[in-house]
């Protein structure tokens, strides 16, 4: 089994990806509507505060899922969950940049073995560098005994 403390020491909080995004206003609108949203801030592109919902912010994906040289854990990664922290409105159609680092690594053990949880954190900023939102992706991997 991999040494989790060693993985933390080597990989936590080191930026491993930077990617530019523009959220398409039509896509932001579709995501809001399909989510059942009714507030004009999310469903009316002409509203002065038209903004992206947390769900579409959570969909922004980094170019790499894990840092270069991160060891294989053997199992198939699963999407364990998402979290979004909103610091300021994210405007569809405007230039964004997401910088990603590994925020946490932890394990849970059960009868079927050890599960490794990897939390990638993307910090989303506008073109002036203002931090607008943070998106956490929880990746779960069932570790193979020989890994």
């Amino acid at each position: 089994m991999l040494d989790i403390d060693d993985l933390k020491a080597r990989f936590l909080n080191l930026e491993f990806d930077s990617k530019d995004f523009v959220i398409d206003p039509d896509n932001a609108l579709t995501v809001a509507r399909m989510s059942g949203e009714t507030l004009p801030e999310f469903t009316d592109p002409t509203h002065p505060d038209f903004q992206a919902t947390p769900a579409i912010i959570a969909s922004l994906a980094s170019g790499r899922r894990l840092p270069i040289n991160f060891p294989s854990l053997g199992g198939i990664p699963m999407d364990g969950g998402k979290a979004v922290t909103c610091l300021a409105p994210v405007k569809p159609g405007s230039a964004l940049n997401g910088r990603t680092h590994l925020h946490d690594i932890y394990t849970k053990s059960g009868r079927s073995g050890r599960m490794v949880f990897l939390v990638s954190r993307m910090e989303i900023r506008d073109s002036e560098g203002h931090h607008l939102a943070t998106s956490d992706s929880h990746m779960v991997i069932r570790e193979r005994p020989e890994a």
Partner: peptide
Amino acid sequence: GIMAMGFLTT
């Protein structure tokens, strides 16, 4: 899963 997040936000 993020659609469920959308439902909950709504």
